[in-house]
Amino acid sequence: MSILVDKNTRLVVQGITGREGSFHTQQMVAFGTNVVAGVTPGKGGQWFETDSQKIPIFDSVKKAVEATGANASVIFVPARFATDAIYEASDAGIPLVVCLTEYIPVLDMIEVRSYLDSKQTRLLGPNCPGLITPGQCKVGIIPGSIVKPGNVGVVSKSGTLTYEVVYALTERGIGQSTCVGIGGDPIQGTDFIDVLQMFEEDPETEQVIMIGEIGGNAEEKAAAYIAQHMSKRVTSFIAGRTAPPGRRMGHAGAIVEGRSGTAESKIKALNDAGVRVADNPDNIVDLVMSS
């Protein structure tokens, strides 16, 4: 078991012929993901060739779903087309949409969230690395070479910092159930609590690592959720303890605004909820391994 994606995932890649889309489609197929279709408007009827297979390209997600039964989508299109791609995937009835695109304006995301509230679609991202269930399915750009099947669930706002932690786990022989990157934008499709709840309900996940960063109060809210609803152990790391206030640290959401969004406040809330917070990502594995 795992969460969100597994062997039964049938993926459609939106923007399959672009530079990032084509490179990562190759990578996803090499990992074993069942990529059933690609979408690039104007290139319907053509094929996308990987080393091992030919993937049909469609002009629209609707056609791709009708022809292939795709049940998940990943979006590799530029920011100015990305919200349209999300709406299209949701309108075509896709239950899981993973949007990797960075630089989507916040007000556009507010509209997207409001739209999705009345739909059956779960959005992951935007501005996220996607997710991976080792041994089964990878959707996005998390390197397949650093994961290993196992029982630790990982959820994170960051990309490369997640790789760092997952790689350290794998090196020490600890496998992962699913690794989920929720992204670092102020408005996200899926938040920490959504993923924590899924890990709590997943029988294969024994404990969870949550990687947060400065900005907003999602970590504080997650801490409250963990205290009330989680029986599984959660270990955490918060990036940005030395970040200066008022400056956006790369991610649109990673900013200490006045007195809110500080690492201290997050670490305290997590500690109060019984979560152990590592001061160095190299130490997270020690905390996970200790009883």
Partner: peptide, 11 residues
Amino acid sequence: GAGLAMTTMDI
């Protein structure tokens, strides 16, 4: 990566 960049500063 922004998260790793912040972490590198922290470390």
